[in-house]
Design a protein around this nucleic acid. Structure first.
Lengths: 215, 215
DNA sequence: CACTTAAAGCGGTGATCTCTGCTTTAAGAA
DNA sequence: TTCTTAAAGCAGAGATCACCGCTTTAAGTG
């Protein structure tokens, strides 16, 4: 009578099916849009039986939420210790996450599920996004630096990014994201303890952050 | 052979059916969400034959777009001649439009159609929204006043409103909308009637409309 | 009023989706 | 390796959807 973990059979075929379904979901979302993703279609493309998907995920909403959640947890940047740089990193990460294939579609997918689940999905999505910025702000506060409230960051950095990506407004690229952060930091609401602007020329190309070409 | 208008039979039963379908669409969108709205369902609730809806609108996307467009054209405010007041009006109108039952759902509906139509729908939605603000800015420019570029208004007023309504962030009310406009106008990028571009007004940006301490 | 005809209603067809018993495969433990 | 059983595959029922000829109604016109 093995009791082991909650996922009593996490490897082998199960894992293979899970991966195939995830990949197929991402592909389909960016091809036809998250609204038109159906379980039979995902199963077909994944080379998997539809009933397996139904048994595992139940609904397309749950499937999309699962994929989106795992997706958002990839490549999270770590803190550097400089508020402005940390905010920039978080902003660039947000932009990258939104801009990659299916990014907006997944955002919309999380917005889309059933009326009951909608609140929960949105809340989780918001939590996930603001967590990155909150970490940067919290670290700054812990260092004794002045930092804008999270709300201001959401309003003046995250919101414009979402808005512009959703509406495919041109020039929504990394420079633009950096500009939003700069504007926020220079708006007189932050007391910069170290007002040295850009002492080093980009020491971190880091996560390539890729091409912000609106998808 | 009567040629008259493009809508060769706009009144009577046709108008009745149109109205019933529109009402049913709005109801269903706010009840089950725009993704789950189907033509048979709308027809059932409207007491109308499904084929009539199929023939008139063709797809649910087209139907939703039609309803959303007509919806957005209701109750448009006129200009007062004062930039700040006009921007406030536009912001409040935007907030009201988004907040009423099904508001966000319709926004998403316009975002949602087929990959091909998506661009067009989004573009139209954006045009419609920014037109209100553009009118206010244009009038101000015509009066010789300094006015922020439309882009700034979209980023710092419209985007936060959309973001907060979509994510159901509390305290997103009229005071908050007014605060966004105030912050924009007082941020030193607008030259008020009295040309005093003091970069550091330090008036304790009192109009901090809502300061909801994060949700 | 009578007449024309746009538009709604009716019925049916094929396709797709959701979901469920039952069988088969293979992951994990002894 | 063998054994147990979680999970995948299979096949099919029931429901719904998108769509299309054909008939019927009534709006607009003279």
């Amino acid at each position: 009578m093995p009791v082991k973990s909650k996922d009593s059979r996490p490897g082998g075929r199960s894992a293979r099916v899970r991966a195939a379904v995830h990949r197929a979901t991402v592909d389909l979302v960016q091809e036809v849009g998250s609204e038109k993703v159906t379980i039979p279609a995902v199963a077909r493309r994944a080379g998997v039986n539809p009933s397996s998907v139904y048994r595992r995920w139940g609904t397309t909403s749950a499937l999309l939420a699962d994929v989106a959640a795992q997706r958002q947890d990839e490549g999270t940047p770590e803190l550097l210790g400089d508020l402005r740089k940390d905010l920039e990193r978080a902003a660039l990460w947000t932009l990258t996450d939104l801009s990659r294939p299916g990014g907006v579609a997944f955002f919309r997918a999380e917005v889309a599920p059933d009326v009951d689940e909608r609140r929960a999905g949105l809340r989780e999505c918001l939590e996930r996004v603001s967590a990155r910025f909150h970490a940067a702000l919290d670290a700054a506060a812990r260092r004794g630096e002045g930092a804008p409230p999270l709300e201001r960051v959401l309003d003046h950095v995250v919101a414009p990014l979402y808005f512009r990506v959703v509406f495919s407004i041109p020039e929504t690229n990394e420079d633009y994201a950096r500009g939003l952060v700069a504007e926020l930091c220079d708006s007189g609401h932050v007391a910069p303890s170290s007002p040295d602007p850009d002492p080093d020329p980009d020491p971190d190309p880091g996560t390539n952050a890729g091409q912000p070409t609106h998808a």
